[in-house]
């Protein structure tokens, strides 16, 4: 539980630039909790179904899987700590310092970096899903899962081209998965 709290404190303080930047940090920390690649993929799918900030959803999910409800609560509070510290601090010194410009310049570097970070997670996740294996760091070539390639391609196309709601996209994927079982 302490390890999870510390991990989510770290994720909170380094989590500049929104949920997806944090998700790549969670992917890296996940191994340490004993989280598997499929469990990470399921977390991202649940994020599409459940309302709320990605970081809060993730903290709740990881906490609950590896320690139950109390750990889920602790992880959620841990990832909330930065906001609770920064807001009063900033408002207190608002007039005195130009923190605004400093943070703007930091974020101007981190935003493009997070593109690379999240793309690396996407490629690594896709690799495991298509070729098999369950290790985060090393792929294993077990076979090629054509159904997954088809689903990935179709969902990506529908998402980028028509901006369908994630709930519909997951439903479509689920139906394809269900049907493919009986083929």
């Amino acid at each position: 539980m302490i390890a999870i709290i510390l991990a989510f404190l770290k994720i909170g303080f380094l989590g500049f630039g929104g949920g997806y930047a944090m998700l790549s940090l969670i992917y890296q920390e996940a191994e340490q909790f004993g989280m598997t690649v499929p469990q990470f993929a399921d977390l991202n799918a649940l994020d599409g179904l459940i309302p709320g900030p990605i970081a809060i959803n993730s903290a709740t999910y990881v906490g609950q899987l590896y320690g139950g409800l109390s750990t889920a609560l602790a992880a959620t509070l841990a990832v909330s700590v930065p906001s609770l510290i920064i807001v009063p601090l900033y408002l207190h010194f608002e007039k005195k310092l130009n923190a605004n410009r400093l943070f703007n310049s930091i974020i101007s570097g981190i935003k493009p970096a997070s593109v690379g970070l999240i793309l690396a997670v996407a490629v690594s996740l896709a690799g495991v899903i298509i070729f098999g294996g369950s290790d985060f760091k090393h792929w294993q070539f077990i076979g090629i899962d054509w159904t997954s390639i088809l689903v990935m391609g179709l969902i990506l196309f529908l998402d980028l081209r028509y901006q369908l709601n994630p709930i519909w996209l997951l439903l479509i994927a689920g139906v394809i998965g269900g049907v493919s079982y009986y083929l």
Partner: peptide, 10 residues
């Protein structure tokens, strides 16, 4: 299939 969709989201 849902995991494959999840990778597509990323």
């Amino acid at each position: 299939a849902i995991r494959a969709a999840s990778a597509a989201f990323l």
